[in-house]
């Protein structure tokens, strides 16, 4: 353990450690990235997608993003499915996901605010045709 020599070092350390506990606080306005983890999703490779989402969110240090998972939504043939929910906006559902697609979605939609239309179920999104 390294000695902390002054207040600046303490603050720097706190800021670095913040995300270690971030999700344990009430964060109602967070952007949610939800991965479908039903049996169908798991069979189609959802665990790898979930890992990719987690790694990407961690890599970009996105404090305002919650990564969650949920069960089957009856759209099994299009799994893995990832849903991006930005508070106050229509949720967007992406289908047939993989790790490469995840990187693009996090970068363009979650960070940039612009949905990746071609990955959505019908290739179009309300408000973004």
């Amino acid at each position: 353990m390294k000695k902390i020599a002054n207040v600046e070092e303490l603050n720097a350390m706190r800021d670095k450690l913040k995300d270690k506990i971030g999700i344990r606080h009430d964060v109602p306005n967070n952007i949610q990235v939800v991965v479908g983890m039903g049996t169908c999703g798991i069979a189609a490779g959802a665990p790898a997608v979930l890992s990719a989402v987690t790694k990407e969110v961690g890599r970009l240090n996105l404090q305002n993003v919650t990564v969650a998972h949920k069960g089957c939504q009856g759209n099994c043939e299009n799994e893995p499915i990832v849903e991006v929910i930005i508070p106050g906006k229509e949720p967007v559902t992406y289908v047939n996901m993989n790790s490469q697609k995840v990187t693009k979605i996090i970068g363009e939609h979650v960070v940039g605010g612009k949905p990746v239309v071609e990955y959505s179920k019908y290739g179009r999104i309300k408000g973004f045709e």
């Binding site: 353990m1 303490l10 603050n11 706190r14 450690l17 270690k20 506990i21």
Partner: peptide
Amino acid sequence: GVIDPEDINEYIAVDGYQALA
């Protein structure tokens, strides 16, 4: 019930020792 009591890093992450500073 929020932080790990045996990990000083978690205490620092929740603004621990900021009051002392």
